[in-house]
Design a protein around this nucleic acid. Structure first.
Lengths: 343, 343
DNA sequence: CGATTGGAGTCAAACGTTTGCACAATATTA
DNA sequence: TAATATTGTGCAAACGTTTGACTCCAATCG
C-alpha cells in the first residue's frame, strides 16, 4: 500500500539500487537520472522506511535520554526541561531524533537501556545525572555503547562527559558571600551520593578555608532537589543557637523553599540572611527578592552533550577529541545576596 | 556478532519460527520447548532487534510528541515539562517509547511529522497545542494517522482530543473575582490564534455578562506565554485612566511577569490589584504573594492523552469510546486574590 | 480400522532497504 | 590503437524478524 523504493524504481525505469543511491547521493549517479528519480519520488509521495533502513545500516539516527529515577518525581525541576531543550535542539539539527526514557529503580533503568541499545532502537544515550556509583554507567561502559554523562563519574574519570566545574562554581559563590562580610555561612546540599552535591560542598569548604573560616557540621544540611528540603533546612538553621547569616544552596528550587520559610518566619532577605544558589533557572529572577544564582548554562550543557554524543557515534574512535567538556559558569548576583553581613 | 533469533534456534535445536513464537507467547508452543528456548536466550544474552521486528510487523511501539513551534522558545514553560512527564509515564507503562520532536515553522513541523509517520518510525502522535487552523492537523487527518490533540480543533470537532473545559474554567476564575466585589476586571490573553486563548476569553466574557458587567476592549490584552507579555500587559493597564482592580491571566508564567511589574511600580497584590491565573504550575505557590491559579491537571492531561492515543493505535476503529476527554479543573485560591475590591 | 482432529513444529516468503560485485559503455592514456 | 580507467547502472544477497501454509505424529472418533 505504501510507496516503496521498488515502486519508484519501476516507474522511473531503473533498478531499486539506483533509487537507493540517489537517496544517499552516491557519486556515481548521473545528474540526469538523479533528477528523474527525485521527481518521481516527489510525484508518488515516496518516504523511506526507516525501519528497513536501520535494519541494514545498523544505525537508527536516534539517541535516548535517560532520566533520573522516577520521571514522575524529578521531572518537576525546570532544570531537566532546559537540558532536554538543549539536547533536542542540537540533535534535530544534526538529523537525530530523541527518545525519552524514564527509569524506575536502578535495575529497571539498566533494563531499559539494555532494551534500547541491544534492541538497536537507539544509537547512544545521554545520562542526565551522575551518581557516585552507577549500574547504568557500568553497563554502558562494559558493552562499549556510545554515551555521555551530564556530570562526571568518579569511577571512570575519562568517560565522555559534559559538566560544570562545580568545585569552582561553589567556591565563587561562597567567596561572593565572604566578600560581603559573612563569616557564618551555611550550605544546603542535595543527595549526598550525587557528584554534584559532593563537588559543590568541596568548593564551599575550600572557599571557607581560604578565608580562614572553619567549616561547621551543623551548618551543612543534606536533602533532595525539592522545595521541601529547602524549607526543612531553613527551619533547622534558624533553630540553631548560632545561626548562619548567609546560605549557599545547591539548587534554585531548594532556594525557593528556603525563601518561603524565611518569609514565613519574618526574616528579611537579604538584610537578615543572604542567599545564593545554583542553576539560574528562568524563574530565579522572579522570586521575591530576586535570587542570586550561579548560571551554569543548562541549555548549553544539553546542547554540548548531544553534540559530543553524536560525534562519538559517527566517529567511534577518533582520537584527539576531549572526553570532558566543561561549560563555563557565571555568577548572577541579584538582590538576595546584595547586602553586607549583619552585625 | 550480535545474537540473533537464528543463533538461539540453532543452539536450542529448533527452527527460528519456534523461537519467534516463544517470544510472542504463541499458544501452540509446548511449555517444555518454551522454557528451553527461554533459558537459552537468557544464557546467550539474546535481545530482539526492534528494527527487524518493526519492519515486518509495521508497528514500532513508539509515539511522538510534537512540540509547538520552536522547542527552543516555548519549552521555557514548566507546563510542557509536566505534560511530557504525564505522557512518558503512561507510555512507558503501556510499553511504548516516546520520541520528542520540536518543530520550527509550521511547514517544518509537517515535514517532521510526515517523516516520522510515513517513515514508520512512530505509530502515532500527540500534539501539544491547538492552533485555530493547523496544517499539521490537516495532514494527520488526511493521512488517517492516529493522533491526539491536547486542546481542541475548531475545524474538526470530534478529533480525538484531551482538553480542559476552558470556557468554564475561565468563567469560574472570573466569577471568583466578581464574588470579591471586583467590577473592573482585566484579561491578559495569549496568542489569539490558540484555541485556549479564545476559550478562556469567552468564559471571562460570559462571567462578566452574567454579573451584568460590560466587557471593555481596553481591558483585554493579548500576548505570548512569556513573562514579558505579562509585564507589558501590566504597564498598559496601569497607564489607563480607569484601571482594572483585578486581572484574569491565561498562564502562570505570564502572571509572574505581571506580578514583577506590579511590585516594581509599588502596587500591592492583592490589596490594590487581585490576580488569578491558569495552569497552577508547581511554582505558583512560591511566588510572593502566592498565586491563585486554576489547576487544570496538566500531568493528567498528558497521561490521558497518551492513554487515548495508544488505545486508538491498538484498536483503530473500535466504536463506543469517547473522542473527547475533559480533564476536570479546580480553583486554587491563594493570597493573590484573597482580598475584596478596593473602593 | 480408516478417517478425522488437534497439537507442536518447520518452511519459506515477505518486510523495504543497502551495498559489494559485476558489467557495459565511454573516456583517457601511452 | 590497444590497454586502462572511469562512469553509470543492475543483480542479488544480506539485515533479523514474523506468519500463513504445510507436515508430521499421536490421539480420538464413528
Amino acid at each position: 500500500m505504501n510507496v516503496t523504493i521498488k515502486d519508484v524504481a519501476k516507474r522511473a525505469g531503473v533498478s531499486p539500487s539506483t533509487v537507493s543511491r540517489v537517496l544517499s547521493n552516491h557519486p556515481r549517479i548521473s545528474r540526469e537520472t538523479s533528477q528523474k528519480v527525485r521527481d518521481i519520488m516527489e510525484e508518488m509521495g515516496y518516504h523511506p522506511n526507516m525501519m528497513a533502513k536501520s535494519l541494514v545500516s545498523k544505525t537508527t539516527e536516534t539517541i535516548c535520554v535517560i532520566l533520573p529515577k522516577p520521571a514522575e518525581e524529578l521531572f518537576l525541576n525546570l532544570f531537566f526541561m532546559e537540558l532536554i531543550r538543549g539536547i533536542v535542539t542540537q540533535a534535530n539539527r544534526s538529523g537525530y531524533d530523541v527518545l525519552i526514557s524514564s527509569g524506575g529503580s536502578e535495575k529497571e533503568e539498566v533494563e531499559a537501556v539494555s532494551r534500547l541499545l541491544n534492541g538497536r532502537r537507539v544509537d547512544g544515550a545521554i545520562l542526565l545525572y551522575s551518581r557516585q556509583d552507577d549500574a547504568v554507567v557500568d553497563y554502558l561502559k562494559a558493552n562499549e555503547y556510545p554515551f555521555v554523562l551530564i556530570g562526571r563519574s568518579e569511577k571512570y574519570p575519562d568517560l565522555l562527559s559534559v559538566d560544570t566545574d562545580n568545585v569552582q562554581a561553589a567556591y565563587d559563590a561562597t567567596k561572593h558571600l565572604i566578600t560581603f562580610g559573612h563569616e557564618r555561612i551555611g550550605f544546603v546540599s542535595g543527595p549526598p551520593n550525587l557528584m554534584v552535591s559532593q563537588d559543590r560542598l568541596k568548593g564551599y569548604g575550600q572557599a571557607l578555608a581560604d578565608a580562614g573560616l572553619t567549616m561547621r557540621k551543623e551548618w551543612i544540611v543534606e536533602g533532595e532537589f525539592l522545595q521541601e528540603s529547602g524549607y526543612r533546612a531553613m527551619s533547622f538553621f534558624m533553630n540553631l543557637p548560632e545561626r548562619p547569616t548567609a546560605l549557599v544552596i545547591v539548587d534554585d528550587i531548594v532556594a525557593f523553599g528556603v525563601l518561603r520559610g524565611l518569609n514565613e518566619l519574618g526574616y528579611k532577605v537579604p538584610q537578615d540572611v543572604s542567599i545564593i544558589s545554583f542553576n539560574n533557572i528562568s524563574l530565579s529572577e522572579l522570586s521575591n527578592p530576586p535570587l542570586s544564582s550561579v548560571d551554569i548554562g543548562i541549555y548549553n550543557l544539553g546542547y554540548t552533550a548531544s553534540q559530543a554524543l553524536i560525534q562519538s557515534i559517527r566517529n567511534p574512535n577518533e582520537k584527539g577529541r576531549p572526553s570532558r567538556y566543561i561549560i563555563p559558569h557565571r555568577l548572577m548576583i541579584r538582590e538576595s545576596s546584595m547586602h553586607s553581613a549583619p552585625k
